[in-house]
Design a protein around this nucleic acid. Structure first.
Lengths: 218, 218
DNA sequence: GCCTGTCGCGGGCAATTTGCCCGATCTTCG
DNA sequence: CGAAGATCGGGCAAATTGCCCGCGACAGGC
């Protein structure tokens, strides 16, 4: 039987080498495509039509979540395993909601990824234990409401605010009024129970929405 | 001639595999030790006494910067190459100040790391081009004045603001009036040329002032 | 088809904060 | 001693926040 054809998406070359080492040398798996950002991930997916995709979600430019949505829109049977350093539950939920079949953190044991790949190839949903725990901890002791309580739009605005964009630029970029952005700014902090803008940045970072400042275009 | 003995420090197993692929298979280099956090990095260094260390600076627990300092304190001839995703100049400067001999970002071409390793083994200081550019841009075109332009007090207030403390709590903690904190908040952003509070958080992070939210007491 | 819920969008307005000015101390240093 | 600079804060107009409201679009459910 022929090998399963895998595509990997990550912006760091060294990390891609790590994937190779783990995946390509694994009997039954073969890497047939690579991409380093969300846009090319979509393009390469259509060219290569891999059996499964392993991707990081923090990519330059568009978020990996968008990439997942985009790919699933093109092929709703696509098997995508998210492999990221973010262990925040909110991000995992977003990814799964977007259509990811697996979610594994980079701090997991290496073979967790391999198991997840084989799992999704069999049509199962594979979530790494630490993430399941994080999700569970979120549900109990509703200490903090989370990203899930924000709408898609609010999440997008949060991402831009946390990146450091001034509200004026956000209004312009999204073609909505300044007032709406401000209202959202207030509501986001309110819903999340945050007092200051700085706390909002930390929240966004922990949720994996942002990992650095700017990111010039939406 | 025997291979150079290299130690790698990174908290993500997959990334370590990437290092292996790049370093271990490189003629003349051999990985002799691995560590996944700052504490064990120090311990392993003493056991293995490698010729060079490649390490990420964002590690669980103590910062990689601390680990560098610690190792250099033990052996001030230690050759340490920092290999990280942070391209902010401030972080690089901290690392170099702590005694790092090289600084390469993960977005660099893979062989940049190899060259940096051979470079530091020869006693040179190797900084990847994008970081040099970031440092240069900091210095020239006073576009961004830097941390050095803030007084001690302002730096302290910046640290608290960026950690997410509300101004009221800061005033209380420092026993100064709310108004003074607000004035400082404004002046800090003004001096640093920042538009939003979120940008201020990123600045503080890159400057190494903060690495996570809260930190309950001053 | 209609009713209900939710979402994105923004107006309105009082209360608060920001942005930028100023002056008063208190050090430090030549 | 006098100059420089840091710290602390008052003042005040302009801008923003906090919180309320309403409107239209859309997705289910009955």
């Amino acid at each position: 039987m022929t090998d399963h054809r895998i595509m990997i998406v990550d912006d760091h070359p060294v990390v891609r080498e790590g994937y190779r080492r783990l995946i390509d040398l694994q009997p039954g798996l073969q890497i047939v495509a690579e991409a380093e950002d969300a846009r090319s991930a979509y393009a390469r997916f259509r060219e290569a039509m891999p059996d499964a995709v392993v991707m990081d979600v923090t990519l330059p430019g568009a978020s990996g979540i968008e990439a997942i949505r985009h790919i699933r829109q093109y092929d709703d049977a696509a098997k995508i395993v998210v492999f990221t350093m973010h262990q925040g539950s909110a991000f995992a939920l977003k990814a799964i909601e977007a259509g990811a079949a697996g979610y594994v953190t980079k701090s997991s044991a290496p073979d967790t990824l391999i198991k997840a790949i084989f799992g999704v190839l069999k049509g199962r949903t594979m979530i790494s234990p630490d993430v399941i725990e994080a999700i569970a901890q979120d549900r109990i002791a509703g200490s903090g409401t989370r990203l899930r309580d924000l709408s898609t739009r609010q999440t997008e605005i949060l991402r831009l605010l946390a990146s450091g964009w001034p509200v004026e630029r956000i209004a312009e970029a999204l073609s909505i009024s300044l007032k709406t952005v401000r209202n959202n700014h207030y509501h986001i902090k309110s819903v999340l129970g945050l007092e200051t803008d700085a706390q909002m940045v930390w929240f966004a970072m922990e949720a994996g929405l942002v990992q650095g400042p700017r990111e010039e275009d939406a």
